[in-house]
Design a protein around this nucleic acid. Structure first.
Lengths: 227, 227
DNA sequence: CGGGGGCTTGAGGCCACTCAACGATAGTGG
DNA sequence: CCACTATCGTTGAGTGGCCTCAAGCCCCCG
Protein backbone atom coordinates (compact mmCIF):
# COMPACT_ATOMS: atom_id res chain seq x y z
CA UNK A 1 0.00 0.00 0.00
CA UNK A 2 2.63 2.47 1.00
CA UNK A 3 6.12 2.29 -0.36
CA UNK A 4 8.85 3.91 1.62
CA UNK A 5 11.89 5.40 0.02
CA UNK A 6 14.58 5.68 2.63
CA UNK A 7 17.76 7.59 1.97
CA UNK A 8 20.08 5.79 4.29
CA UNK A 9 23.47 7.38 4.14
CA UNK A 10 23.56 8.47 7.75
CA UNK A 11 26.97 8.56 9.30
CA UNK A 12 26.75 6.53 12.50
CA UNK A 13 27.80 8.22 15.70
CA UNK A 14 30.42 5.57 16.32
CA UNK A 15 33.32 7.91 16.27
CA UNK A 16 32.08 9.77 19.28
CA UNK A 17 34.33 9.67 22.27
CA UNK A 18 32.80 8.32 25.43
CA UNK A 19 30.61 10.72 27.24
CA UNK A 20 30.65 11.89 30.76
CA UNK A 21 27.37 11.41 32.59
CA UNK A 22 25.79 13.98 34.78
CA UNK A 23 23.67 12.64 37.58
CA UNK A 24 21.27 15.53 37.14
CA UNK A 25 17.54 15.01 37.23
CA UNK A 26 17.67 15.58 33.49
CA UNK A 27 19.85 12.73 32.36
CA UNK A 28 20.64 14.07 28.93
CA UNK A 29 21.96 17.53 29.60
CA UNK A 30 25.31 18.65 28.31
CA UNK A 31 26.30 15.74 26.13
CA UNK A 32 27.47 15.09 22.62
CA UNK A 33 25.51 16.33 19.69
CA UNK A 34 24.89 14.93 16.27
CA UNK A 35 22.99 16.10 13.21
CA UNK A 36 20.89 14.30 10.66
CA UNK A 37 19.71 15.66 7.33
CA UNK A 38 16.08 15.53 6.33
CA UNK A 39 14.94 12.00 5.59
CA UNK A 40 17.95 10.29 7.09
CA UNK A 41 17.57 7.30 9.38
CA UNK A 42 18.73 7.69 12.97
CA UNK A 43 18.34 4.00 13.75
CA UNK A 44 16.45 1.05 12.34
CA UNK A 45 13.98 -1.36 13.87
CA UNK A 46 15.73 -4.36 15.45
CA UNK A 47 19.06 -2.62 15.47
CA UNK A 48 20.93 -2.86 18.77
CA UNK A 49 19.97 0.11 20.92
CA UNK A 50 23.31 1.70 21.58
CA UNK A 51 22.25 5.28 22.22
CA UNK A 52 19.45 7.29 23.72
CA UNK A 53 18.58 10.55 21.99
CA UNK A 54 17.11 13.93 22.79
CA UNK A 55 15.92 16.28 20.07
CA UNK A 56 17.72 19.59 20.25
CA UNK A 57 16.17 21.02 17.09
CA UNK A 58 14.17 19.56 14.25
CA UNK A 59 11.77 16.62 14.33
CA UNK A 60 11.91 12.84 14.17
CA UNK A 61 9.34 10.15 13.29
CA UNK A 62 9.31 6.66 14.81
CA UNK A 63 7.55 4.01 12.78
CA UNK A 64 7.00 0.33 12.08
CA UNK A 65 6.58 -1.17 8.64
CA UNK A 66 4.64 -4.19 7.44
CA UNK A 67 6.31 -6.35 4.85
CA UNK A 68 4.23 -4.85 2.05
CA UNK A 69 5.19 -1.30 2.98
CA UNK A 70 2.25 -0.18 5.08
CA UNK A 71 3.60 2.16 7.69
CA UNK A 72 2.45 3.10 11.18
CA UNK A 73 4.11 6.06 12.84
CA UNK A 74 4.03 5.57 16.59
CA UNK A 75 5.21 9.00 17.61
CA UNK A 76 6.69 12.29 16.49
CA UNK A 77 9.63 13.55 18.51
CA UNK A 78 10.01 17.32 18.73
CA UNK A 79 12.45 19.62 20.48
CA UNK A 80 13.29 18.44 24.05
CA UNK A 81 11.69 15.01 23.48
CA UNK A 82 13.75 11.98 24.41
CA UNK A 83 13.52 8.97 22.13
CA UNK A 84 15.23 5.67 21.43
CA UNK A 85 14.94 4.69 25.06
CA UNK A 86 14.57 0.93 25.03
CA UNK A 87 14.63 -1.41 27.94
CA UNK A 88 15.57 -4.41 25.88
CA UNK A 89 18.62 -4.32 23.71
CA UNK A 90 16.91 -3.64 20.37
CA UNK A 91 15.04 -0.69 18.92
CA UNK A 92 11.39 -1.44 18.31
CA UNK A 93 10.92 1.37 15.80
CA UNK A 94 12.77 2.92 12.95
CA UNK A 95 13.58 6.58 13.62
CA UNK A 96 14.06 9.10 10.82
CA UNK A 97 14.73 12.81 10.74
CA UNK A 98 11.68 14.58 9.27
CA UNK A 99 13.65 17.77 8.69
CA UNK A 100 17.26 18.62 9.37
CA UNK A 101 17.65 17.65 12.99
CA UNK A 102 20.19 17.93 15.76
CA UNK A 103 20.14 15.56 18.70
CA UNK A 104 21.99 15.06 21.93
CA UNK A 105 22.91 11.52 22.74
CA UNK A 106 24.23 9.27 25.46
CA UNK A 107 25.32 5.68 25.43
CA UNK A 108 22.57 3.52 26.76
CA UNK A 109 25.03 1.50 28.79
CA UNK A 110 26.29 4.47 30.74
CA UNK A 111 22.74 5.55 31.41
CA UNK A 112 21.92 2.11 32.78
CA UNK A 113 25.04 2.20 34.86
CA UNK A 114 24.05 5.45 36.48
CA UNK A 115 20.51 4.24 37.04
CA UNK A 116 21.96 1.28 38.89
CA UNK A 117 23.26 3.42 41.69
CA UNK A 118 21.13 6.55 41.41
CA UNK A 119 17.52 5.88 42.35
CA UNK A 120 16.55 9.30 41.01
CA UNK A 121 17.73 8.45 37.52
CA UNK A 122 16.04 5.06 37.77
CA UNK A 123 12.75 6.75 38.65
CA UNK A 124 13.14 9.06 35.69
CA UNK A 125 13.63 6.16 33.34
CA UNK A 126 10.45 4.55 34.64
CA UNK A 127 8.53 7.77 34.39
CA UNK A 128 9.64 8.38 30.81
CA UNK A 129 8.66 4.86 29.86
CA UNK A 130 5.30 5.40 31.52
CA UNK A 131 4.76 8.59 29.52
CA UNK A 132 5.43 6.69 26.32
CA UNK A 133 3.04 3.99 27.44
CA UNK A 134 0.32 6.49 28.21
CA UNK A 135 0.70 8.08 24.80
CA UNK A 136 0.50 4.68 23.13
CA UNK A 137 -2.62 3.80 25.12
CA UNK A 138 -4.37 6.99 24.09
CA UNK A 139 -3.29 6.42 20.50
CA UNK A 140 -4.79 2.93 20.50
CA UNK A 141 -8.15 4.46 21.32
CA UNK A 142 -7.72 6.93 18.48
CA UNK A 143 -6.67 4.28 15.96
CA UNK A 144 -9.25 1.76 16.99
CA UNK A 145 -12.34 3.86 17.48
CA UNK A 146 -12.18 7.43 16.21
CA UNK A 147 -13.41 8.82 12.90
CA UNK A 148 -11.11 10.59 10.47
CA UNK A 149 -12.28 14.03 11.58
CA UNK A 150 -11.80 13.16 15.23
CA UNK A 151 -8.32 11.87 14.53
CA UNK A 152 -7.21 14.98 12.71
CA UNK A 153 -8.72 17.19 15.40
CA UNK A 154 -6.88 15.21 18.07
CA UNK A 155 -3.67 15.50 16.10
CA UNK A 156 -3.97 19.26 15.80
CA UNK A 157 -4.64 19.63 19.50
CA UNK A 158 -1.66 17.45 20.34
CA UNK A 159 0.65 19.45 18.08
CA UNK A 160 -0.81 22.68 19.33
CA UNK A 161 0.27 21.79 22.83
CA UNK A 162 3.76 20.99 21.68
CA UNK A 163 4.84 23.48 19.07
CA UNK A 164 2.62 26.49 18.78
CA UNK A 165 4.55 29.74 18.77
CA UNK A 166 2.84 33.10 18.42
CA UNK A 167 -0.44 31.39 17.61
CA UNK A 168 0.98 29.70 14.55
CA UNK A 169 1.68 25.99 14.34
CA UNK A 170 4.48 25.16 11.91
CA UNK A 171 4.13 21.47 11.20
CA UNK A 172 7.39 19.82 10.25
CA UNK A 173 5.73 16.70 8.87
CA UNK A 174 3.99 16.03 5.56
CA UNK A 175 0.39 14.96 5.04
CA UNK A 176 1.65 11.46 4.45
CA UNK A 177 3.39 11.44 7.81
CA UNK A 178 0.25 12.68 9.51
CA UNK A 179 -1.78 10.03 7.72
CA UNK A 180 0.56 7.25 8.78
CA UNK A 181 0.41 8.54 12.32
CA UNK A 182 -3.40 8.60 12.33
CA UNK A 183 -4.02 5.38 10.44
CA UNK A 184 -5.50 7.19 7.43
CA UNK A 185 -4.49 8.09 3.88
CA UNK A 186 -3.01 11.43 3.02
CA UNK A 187 -6.08 12.30 0.95
CA UNK A 188 -8.35 11.73 3.91
CA UNK A 189 -6.15 13.93 6.09
CA UNK A 190 -6.21 16.64 3.46
CA UNK A 191 -9.98 16.48 3.18
CA UNK A 192 -10.38 16.66 6.94
CA UNK A 193 -8.16 19.74 7.10
CA UNK A 194 -10.14 21.36 4.29
CA UNK A 195 -13.32 20.60 6.15
CA UNK A 196 -11.97 22.15 9.34
CA UNK A 197 -10.93 25.16 7.30
CA UNK A 198 -14.47 25.53 5.90
CA UNK A 199 -15.84 25.20 9.41
CA UNK A 200 -13.72 28.15 10.45
CA UNK A 201 -11.82 26.11 13.00
CA UNK A 202 -8.43 26.77 11.48
CA UNK A 203 -6.63 28.96 9.00
CA UNK A 204 -3.59 28.55 6.79
CA UNK A 205 -0.77 31.04 6.66
CA UNK A 206 1.67 31.83 3.89
CA UNK A 207 2.15 29.84 0.76
CA UNK A 208 3.15 26.56 2.37
CA UNK A 209 0.28 24.47 3.73
CA UNK A 210 2.13 23.52 6.88
CA UNK A 211 1.57 26.70 8.83
CA UNK A 212 -1.70 26.46 10.64
CA UNK A 213 -3.54 28.82 12.96
CA UNK A 214 -6.09 27.34 15.29
CA UNK A 215 -9.01 29.74 15.33
CA UNK A 216 -11.37 27.86 17.58
CA UNK A 217 -9.74 25.41 19.95
CA UNK A 218 -12.98 24.87 21.79
CA UNK A 219 -14.82 23.72 18.69
CA UNK A 220 -11.83 21.61 17.74
CA UNK A 221 -11.86 19.91 21.12
CA UNK A 222 -15.56 19.22 20.77
CA UNK A 223 -14.87 17.47 17.46
CA UNK A 224 -12.44 15.16 19.19
CA UNK A 225 -14.48 13.16 21.62
CA UNK A 226 -12.52 12.59 24.74
CA UNK A 227 -12.69 9.56 26.92
CA UNK B 1 -22.12 3.37 18.73
CA UNK B 2 -21.52 0.85 21.48
CA UNK B 3 -23.41 1.01 24.70
CA UNK B 4 -21.86 -0.57 27.71
CA UNK B 5 -23.92 -2.05 30.46
CA UNK B 6 -21.80 -2.28 33.54
CA UNK B 7 -22.97 -4.15 36.58
CA UNK B 8 -21.07 -2.32 39.24
CA UNK B 9 -21.77 -3.88 42.56
CA UNK B 10 -18.21 -4.96 43.20
CA UNK B 11 -17.20 -5.08 46.81
CA UNK B 12 -14.04 -3.03 47.10
CA UNK B 13 -11.04 -4.69 48.66
CA UNK B 14 -10.89 -2.04 51.33
CA UNK B 15 -11.42 -4.38 54.19
CA UNK B 16 -8.23 -6.21 53.48
CA UNK B 17 -5.68 -6.07 56.19
CA UNK B 18 -2.30 -4.73 55.17
CA UNK B 19 -0.13 -7.15 53.36
CA UNK B 20 3.37 -8.26 54.01
CA UNK B 21 5.69 -7.80 51.08
CA UNK B 22 8.13 -10.34 49.84
CA UNK B 23 11.24 -8.95 48.20
CA UNK B 24 11.24 -11.86 45.78
CA UNK B 25 11.93 -11.36 42.12
CA UNK B 26 8.24 -12.01 41.65
CA UNK B 27 6.75 -9.14 43.57
CA UNK B 28 3.24 -10.50 43.82
CA UNK B 29 3.74 -13.94 45.27
CA UNK B 30 1.93 -15.06 48.34
CA UNK B 31 -0.43 -12.17 48.95
CA UNK B 32 -4.08 -11.54 49.54
CA UNK B 33 -6.65 -12.81 47.13
CA UNK B 34 -9.91 -11.41 45.95
CA UNK B 35 -12.61 -12.61 43.59
CA UNK B 36 -14.81 -10.83 41.11
CA UNK B 37 -17.90 -12.21 39.43
CA UNK B 38 -18.29 -12.10 35.67
CA UNK B 39 -18.84 -8.58 34.39
CA UNK B 40 -17.88 -6.86 37.60
CA UNK B 41 -15.56 -3.85 37.58
CA UNK B 42 -12.21 -4.22 39.31
CA UNK B 43 -11.39 -0.54 39.04
CA UNK B 44 -12.49 2.39 36.92
CA UNK B 45 -10.59 4.80 34.72
CA UNK B 46 -9.32 7.81 36.68
CA UNK B 47 -9.83 6.10 39.99
CA UNK B 48 -6.88 6.36 42.35
CA UNK B 49 -4.59 3.40 41.79
CA UNK B 50 -4.48 1.83 45.19
CA UNK B 51 -3.67 -1.75 44.28
CA UNK B 52 -1.71 -3.78 41.76
CA UNK B 53 -3.28 -7.05 40.64
CA UNK B 54 -2.24 -10.43 39.35
CA UNK B 55 -4.72 -12.79 37.74
CA UNK B 56 -4.82 -16.09 39.58
CA UNK B 57 -7.66 -17.54 37.55
CA UNK B 58 -10.16 -16.11 35.10
CA UNK B 59 -9.70 -13.19 32.73
CA UNK B 60 -9.90 -9.40 32.80
CA UNK B 61 -10.36 -6.75 30.12
CA UNK B 62 -8.86 -3.24 30.32
CA UNK B 63 -10.59 -0.61 28.23
CA UNK B 64 -11.21 3.04 27.55
CA UNK B 65 -14.54 4.54 26.57
CA UNK B 66 -15.43 7.53 24.44
CA UNK B 67 -18.27 9.68 25.68
CA UNK B 68 -20.68 8.13 23.16
CA UNK B 69 -19.90 4.62 24.29
CA UNK B 70 -17.34 3.50 21.72
CA UNK B 71 -14.96 1.17 23.50
CA UNK B 72 -11.35 0.25 22.93
CA UNK B 73 -9.98 -2.69 24.86
CA UNK B 74 -6.26 -2.20 25.38
CA UNK B 75 -5.43 -5.61 26.74
CA UNK B 76 -6.76 -8.89 28.04
CA UNK B 77 -5.24 -10.12 31.27
CA UNK B 78 -5.07 -13.88 31.70
CA UNK B 79 -3.72 -16.16 34.42
CA UNK B 80 -0.37 -14.97 35.81
CA UNK B 81 -0.66 -11.54 34.12
CA UNK B 82 -0.09 -8.50 36.29
CA UNK B 83 -2.31 -5.49 35.67
CA UNK B 84 -3.30 -2.19 37.22
CA UNK B 85 0.33 -1.19 37.52
CA UNK B 86 0.35 2.57 37.13
CA UNK B 87 3.21 4.94 37.63
CA UNK B 88 0.99 7.91 38.18
CA UNK B 89 -1.63 7.83 40.86
CA UNK B 90 -4.64 7.13 38.66
CA UNK B 91 -5.77 4.16 36.59
CA UNK B 92 -5.78 4.89 32.89
CA UNK B 93 -8.17 2.07 32.02
CA UNK B 94 -11.28 0.51 33.43
CA UNK B 95 -10.73 -3.14 34.33
CA UNK B 96 -13.56 -5.67 34.37
CA UNK B 97 -13.74 -9.38 35.03
CA UNK B 98 -14.69 -11.18 31.80
CA UNK B 99 -15.56 -14.36 33.66
CA UNK B 100 -15.48 -15.18 37.36
CA UNK B 101 -11.97 -14.20 38.31
CA UNK B 102 -9.66 -14.47 41.28
CA UNK B 103 -6.75 -12.07 41.69
CA UNK B 104 -3.87 -11.55 44.03
CA UNK B 105 -3.24 -7.99 45.05
CA UNK B 106 -0.77 -5.71 46.78
CA UNK B 107 -0.98 -2.14 47.83
CA UNK B 108 0.76 0.04 45.30
CA UNK B 109 2.37 2.07 48.04
CA UNK B 110 4.11 -0.89 49.63
CA UNK B 111 5.34 -1.99 46.23
CA UNK B 112 6.82 1.46 45.63
CA UNK B 113 8.35 1.40 49.04
CA UNK B 114 10.14 -1.84 48.34
CA UNK B 115 11.26 -0.64 44.91
CA UNK B 116 12.84 2.33 46.63
CA UNK B 117 15.42 0.20 48.38
CA UNK B 118 15.48 -2.93 46.26
CA UNK B 119 16.99 -2.28 42.83
CA UNK B 120 15.84 -5.70 41.68
CA UNK B 121 12.20 -4.86 42.29
CA UNK B 122 12.69 -1.48 40.64
CA UNK B 123 14.11 -3.16 37.54
CA UNK B 124 11.14 -5.50 37.46
CA UNK B 125 8.73 -2.59 37.55
CA UNK B 126 10.50 -1.00 34.62
CA UNK B 127 10.59 -4.23 32.70
CA UNK B 128 6.88 -4.85 33.23
CA UNK B 129 6.08 -1.34 32.08
CA UNK B 130 8.26 -1.90 29.02
CA UNK B 131 6.39 -5.10 28.20
CA UNK B 132 3.13 -3.22 28.34
CA UNK B 133 4.61 -0.52 26.13
CA UNK B 134 5.82 -3.03 23.58
CA UNK B 135 2.40 -4.65 23.44
CA UNK B 136 0.77 -1.28 22.93
CA UNK B 137 3.22 -0.40 20.17
CA UNK B 138 2.50 -3.60 18.29
CA UNK B 139 -1.20 -3.05 18.79
CA UNK B 140 -0.99 0.44 17.28
CA UNK B 141 0.36 -1.11 14.10
CA UNK B 142 -2.49 -3.59 14.09
CA UNK B 143 -5.16 -0.95 14.71
CA UNK B 144 -3.75 1.57 12.29
CA UNK B 145 -2.75 -0.57 9.35
CA UNK B 146 -4.02 -4.15 9.34
CA UNK B 147 -7.09 -5.57 7.59
CA UNK B 148 -9.83 -7.36 9.49
CA UNK B 149 -8.52 -10.79 8.55
CA UNK B 150 -5.01 -9.88 9.59
CA UNK B 151 -6.27 -8.56 12.91
CA UNK B 152 -8.23 -11.68 13.73
CA UNK B 153 -5.31 -13.89 12.68
CA UNK B 154 -2.98 -11.89 14.91
CA UNK B 155 -5.45 -12.16 17.77
CA UNK B 156 -5.68 -15.92 17.46
CA UNK B 157 -1.92 -16.27 17.39
CA UNK B 158 -1.58 -14.08 20.45
CA UNK B 159 -4.18 -16.05 22.39
CA UNK B 160 -2.69 -19.30 21.18
CA UNK B 161 0.60 -18.39 22.81
CA UNK B 162 -1.12 -17.55 26.04
CA UNK B 163 -3.85 -20.04 26.72
CA UNK B 164 -3.78 -23.08 24.51
CA UNK B 165 -4.09 -26.30 26.46
CA UNK B 166 -4.14 -29.68 24.74
CA UNK B 167 -4.40 -28.03 21.34
CA UNK B 168 -7.64 -26.31 22.24
CA UNK B 169 -8.00 -22.61 22.86
CA UNK B 170 -10.86 -21.79 25.22
CA UNK B 171 -11.52 -18.10 24.72
CA UNK B 172 -13.00 -16.44 27.78
CA UNK B 173 -14.10 -13.33 25.88
CA UNK B 174 -17.09 -12.69 23.64
CA UNK B 175 -17.05 -11.66 19.99
CA UNK B 176 -17.82 -8.13 21.09
CA UNK B 177 -14.79 -8.09 23.37
CA UNK B 178 -12.60 -9.36 20.55
CA UNK B 179 -14.05 -6.73 18.24
CA UNK B 180 -13.40 -3.93 20.71
CA UNK B 181 -9.87 -5.20 21.14
CA UNK B 182 -9.24 -5.28 17.39
CA UNK B 183 -11.03 -2.08 16.44
CA UNK B 184 -13.75 -3.93 14.50
CA UNK B 185 -17.42 -4.83 14.93
CA UNK B 186 -18.51 -8.16 16.29
CA UNK B 187 -20.04 -9.08 12.93
CA UNK B 188 -16.75 -8.52 11.16
CA UNK B 189 -14.95 -10.69 13.71
CA UNK B 190 -17.54 -13.42 13.27
CA UNK B 191 -17.20 -13.28 9.49
CA UNK B 192 -13.42 -13.45 9.69
CA UNK B 193 -13.62 -16.50 11.94
CA UNK B 194 -16.07 -18.16 9.56
CA UNK B 195 -13.72 -17.41 6.71
CA UNK B 196 -10.77 -18.92 8.56
CA UNK B 197 -12.93 -21.93 9.28
CA UNK B 198 -13.75 -22.33 5.58
CA UNK B 199 -10.07 -22.00 4.78
CA UNK B 200 -9.37 -24.92 7.06
CA UNK B 201 -7.17 -22.85 9.32
CA UNK B 202 -9.19 -23.49 12.44
CA UNK B 203 -11.93 -25.68 13.83
CA UNK B 204 -14.60 -25.27 16.48
CA UNK B 205 -15.16 -27.77 19.25
CA UNK B 206 -18.27 -28.56 21.18
CA UNK B 207 -21.47 -26.57 21.09
CA UNK B 208 -20.01 -23.32 22.31
CA UNK B 209 -18.22 -21.22 19.73
CA UNK B 210 -15.45 -20.24 22.07
CA UNK B 211 -13.42 -23.39 21.87
CA UNK B 212 -11.11 -23.15 18.93
CA UNK B 213 -8.51 -25.50 17.52
CA UNK B 214 -5.82 -24.01 15.36
CA UNK B 215 -5.29 -26.44 12.51
CA UNK B 216 -2.71 -24.55 10.52
CA UNK B 217 -0.65 -22.07 12.48
CA UNK B 218 1.68 -21.56 9.56
CA UNK B 219 -1.09 -20.44 7.24
CA UNK B 220 -2.51 -18.31 10.03
CA UNK B 221 0.83 -16.60 10.52
CA UNK B 222 1.07 -15.92 6.80
CA UNK B 223 -2.31 -14.19 6.95
CA UNK B 224 -1.01 -11.86 9.60
CA UNK B 225 1.71 -9.82 7.96
CA UNK B 226 4.47 -9.21 10.41
CA UNK B 227 6.62 -6.16 10.60
C1' DC C 1 12.59 27.26 -16.75
C1' DG C 2 11.74 22.59 -16.58
C1' DG C 3 10.99 18.77 -13.34
C1' DG C 4 9.47 16.82 -9.24
C1' DG C 5 7.37 16.56 -4.89
C1' DG C 6 3.63 17.99 -1.89
C1' DC C 7 -1.18 19.21 -1.54
C1' DT C 8 -5.95 19.46 -2.95
C1' DT C 9 -9.99 17.90 -5.13
C1' DG C 10 -13.04 14.82 -7.74
C1' DA C 11 -14.99 10.26 -9.19
C1' DG C 12 -15.64 5.69 -8.29
C1' DG C 13 -14.95 1.39 -5.68
C1' DC C 14 -14.50 -1.58 -1.77
C1' DC C 15 -14.13 -3.10 2.84
C1' DA C 16 -16.00 -2.80 7.08
C1' DC C 17 -20.20 -1.02 9.29
C1' DT C 18 -25.27 -0.95 10.06
C1' DC C 19 -29.51 -3.02 10.39
C1' DA C 20 -31.99 -7.06 10.64
C1' DA C 21 -33.43 -11.88 11.06
C1' DC C 22 -32.60 -16.19 12.92
C1' DG C 23 -30.73 -20.25 15.51
C1' DA C 24 -28.43 -21.85 19.51
C1' DT C 25 -27.20 -21.59 24.22
C1' DA C 26 -27.27 -20.55 28.97
C1' DG C 27 -29.49 -18.84 32.82
C1' DT C 28 -34.04 -18.29 35.52
C1' DG C 29 -38.02 -19.35 37.79
C1' DG C 30 -42.09 -22.06 38.00
C1' DC D 1 -37.61 -30.75 34.41
C1' DC D 2 -39.34 -27.63 31.25
C1' DA D 3 -40.92 -23.21 29.33
C1' DC D 4 -39.31 -18.59 29.10
C1' DT D 5 -36.11 -15.17 28.25
C1' DA D 6 -31.86 -12.86 27.51
C1' DT D 7 -27.55 -13.24 25.52
C1' DC D 8 -24.46 -14.75 22.09
C1' DG D 9 -23.16 -15.91 17.53
C1' DT D 10 -23.93 -16.31 12.57
C1' DT D 11 -25.43 -14.76 8.25
C1' DG D 12 -27.53 -11.75 4.71
C1' DA D 13 -28.59 -7.26 2.47
C1' DG D 14 -27.61 -2.71 1.92
C1' DT D 15 -25.08 1.52 3.21
C1' DG D 16 -21.36 4.57 3.91
C1' DG D 17 -16.78 6.24 5.12
C1' DC D 18 -12.51 5.87 3.83
C1' DC D 19 -9.47 4.23 0.15
C1' DT D 20 -7.93 4.17 -4.67
C1' DC D 21 -6.96 6.27 -8.80
C1' DA D 22 -6.41 10.33 -11.26
C1' DA D 23 -5.92 15.12 -12.58
C1' DG D 24 -4.33 19.57 -11.69
C1' DC D 25 -2.12 23.33 -9.01
C1' DC D 26 1.55 25.40 -6.55
C1' DC D 27 5.95 25.84 -4.77
C1' DC D 28 10.59 24.68 -4.42
C1' DC D 29 14.86 23.59 -6.38
C1' DG D 30 18.03 22.41 -9.50
Amino acid sequence: MFVRITTDSAPRPNSLRDLGMTSDSNPLVGLSEFSYKKGVEVYGEKEPAEYVYQVKSGAVRSYKLLSDGRRQIGAFHLATDIFGLENGSEHRFTAEAIVDTTVRLVKRKSLELVAESDAMVARNLLSMTTSNLQHAEDHMLLLGRKTSLERVAAFLLEMDKRLTAAGVMALPMSRRDIADYLGLTLETVSRALSRLHELGVLGFIGNTQRQIVLLDRHQLASLDLTS
